[in-house]
């Protein structure tokens, strides 16, 4: 599954949503990948997500290549979309 997402929050993908995201991603069997400017980042790693530096307006692609349910994918999208 794959989806393009634009970070809308003023403060970007900051520590709180990042830690929520990592927690959620950690529960999934599949890899979770965030793509920014063609570069891939590990969605299960806090260090990696923080280092990605997603400010407001950043375009990201969320990619879950393995098996996952619609529901957990939607959850990940929701965290990114509501990143505050």
């Amino acid at each position: 599954m794959e989806k393009k997402i634009v970070i809308l929050s003023e403060s970007g993908l900051h520590a709180r949503p990042a830690s929520l995201f990592v927690k959620e991603a950690g529960n999934m069997a599949s890899d979770v990948i965030l793509v920014k400017d063609g570069k891939e980042y590990n969605g299960k790693s806090m260090v990696s997500i923080l280092g990605l530096g997603a400010a407001k307006g950043t375009e990201l692609t969320l990619r879950v290549p393995g098996i996952s349910t619609e529901e957990s994918f939607a959850k990940l999208c929701a965290i990114l979309e509501s990143a505050s």
């Binding site: 590990n42 790693s45 260090v47 990696s48």
Partner: peptide
Amino acid sequence: KWMLLDPEWTA
């Protein structure tokens, strides 16, 4: 602790 267990760091 979570930093020690971070998959990117260990990888």
